[in-house]
Design a protein around this nucleic acid. Structure first.
Lengths: 198, 198
DNA sequence: GTCTATAGTTCGATAGAC
DNA sequence: GTCTATCGAACTATAGAC
């Protein structure tokens, strides 16, 4: 019995991931309201009813997707903070990571979080939970900047505010590439010059 | 008869503006798909049917809204180019304008254009028309930067690419304030330092 | 020009068979 | 665990009265 229970769990976990992955893609492209359950199920190649075997509702799945994304971002910032090298190296690494790898996935995640934060179909309590998580990443970036200022590597100014400038710049560039207007290869050095003294 | 025709036209134009204004607000907040015609009509305080007296369909109204926004942006960039003073002054003026006045309306317009460009409910032809208009503004900004480079006021680099960095930065900051996370008062000088040599 | 009523359609969610 | 069939609510768009 133990064996088949384990197997069931593996199937369940795998399906959960498959459905989540499909949902991220579809939600980011079409937005919450325009996304039909059937869009998700057809992308994940499952039946309509099976979706409701894994998720309570469209909204419940959406919220858990966002929370997972924010958690991932927190961990990435932590990884940057724990890296060897100067604060400048740490911020450059974070910037590199943002614009290397799957830009497409980065775009999807940004779009999703952005929509979630300004949405009207989520309660204030739900959004507040997102904001709390978001702030944890912001504070990590602010710490990197503060350290860099002590070392004389970064320009002066309130660290939290500079973190916001950094995030806005980085996300603005990410979103730019989400449009079809004129995609560019982002240069980490160009972004860094905004914040560095050299 | 001439008099009443004129009056009809005045009523029609006013209503058209009212409905457009209401629609901008609602579309930006809820997105295209989530926006119900009844949201627009209740915001504009008109009946459901009257909407269809002024607009062919939800989609037709959406497209004309976007085109009007892009046209406005083109004219603002032109105004910046035609201003007296250095190229630096011109770009600073454009930045000022973006972050002064009704930030709320600026946010709404950005959100709308962004959604339109990545949307899947518009044909490629429709989106191409948006992109063409968008590029006209980009080229205006690139011209300002190119002139500034000649005067030694701006950093080196491909003007069009720098225009994209500028737009991404500016729009990233605008969108930042659309979220409830941690709004800031944007400083034009902080933005300008990214592009200026001083 | 404006409104109400409603036809026609879509989609989230559930029930029940395998 | 998975699928098909179906219900019921909500929404776009139109028709017709005033």
């Amino acid at each position: 019995m133990a064996k088949s229970e384990e197997q069931f769990k593996m199937i369940r976990d795998q399906r959960y991931e498959e459905i989540s992955h499909a949902a991220l893609k579809v939600f980011a492209r079409k937005g919450y309201a325009a996304t039909k359950i059937s869009d998700i199920t057809s992308t994940a190649n499952i039946s309509h009813g099976l979706f409701y075997h894994y998720f309570q509702s469209k909204k419940h799945m959406y919220v858990s997707l966002i929370l997972n994304i924010l958690q991932l971002f927190i961990e990435t910032v932590e990884e940057a903070e724990n890296r060897k090298g100067t604060s400048r190296d740490q911020l450059a690494w974070l910037t590199d990571i943002t614009f290397s790898g799957s830009l497409e996935q980065a775009i999807d995640r940004h779009l999703l979080v952005m929509e979630a934060l300004k949405s009207e179909f989520l309660s204030e309590e739900e959004k507040q939970e997102f904001i709390e998580k978001y702030k944890i990443s912001m504070e990590g970036i602010a710490r990197i900047i503060k350290n860099g200022q002590k070392e004389g590597l970064f320009i002066e100014g309130d660290p939290m505010e500079l973190a916001i400038y950094y995030l806005s710049y980085s996300q603005g560039l990410t979103l730019w590439n989400a449009r079809g207007v004129h995609p560019i290869k982002v240069s980490t050095e160009t972004v860094m010059r905004q914040f560095c003294t050299d």
